[in-house]
Simulated scan of single mutants.
Amino acid sequence: MTTNTIYSAYDSFARVMNEDWGTEDSEAVLPDVEALFLKHLPQQSSILDLCCGTGHLARKLQDKGYQVTGIDGSSELLRYARDNAPQSKFIVDDARYFKLPASFNGVISTNYGLNHITKLEELTWVFQNVYTTLLSNGLFVFDLRLDKFYKKDNWNNSLIGNVQDEYAWALKRIYNPEEKIGNIYITIFELTNNNWKRSDLTWSVKGYDLEEVIFALQTVGFKNINYYNQEDISAHTKEANILYFVCHK
Rank of each mutant, 00 (worst) to 15 (best):
Q44C: 11
S46R: 12
I47S: 09
I47M: 11
L48I: 00
L48C: 03
G55H: 06
G55S: 09
Q62N: 13
K64A: 12
K64H: 02
V68I: 09
T69H: 10
G70D: 10
I71Y: 00
D72T: 00
E76R: 06
L78F: 00
L78E: 09
R79C: 09
Y80A: 04
A81I: 01
D83Q: 13
D83P: 08
Q87E: 12
Q87I: 07
D94M: 02
A95E: 04
R96D: 06
P101T: 07
S103Q: 15
N105C: 08
V107D: 08
I108K: 09
S109T: 05
N115D: 11
H116Q: 11
I117D: 05
T118R: 01
K119H: 14
E121W: 00
E122Y: 08
L123N: 08
W125Y: 09
V126M: 06
F127T: 03
T133W: 02
T133V: 02
L134Y: 06
S136T: 11
F140D: 05
V141M: 10
V141D: 07
D143A: 09
D143W: 07
L144E: 06
L144Y: 08
L144S: 04
F149Y: 13
Y150N: 13
K151A: 14
K152Q: 15
K152W: 08
K152P: 08
K152S: 15
D153H: 14
N157Q: 15
N157S: 15
I160Q: 12
I160D: 15
V163E: 01
E166Q: 10
Y167N: 04
W169R: 06
A170F: 10
K172A: 13
I174L: 14
N176L: 09
P177A: 14
E178N: 13
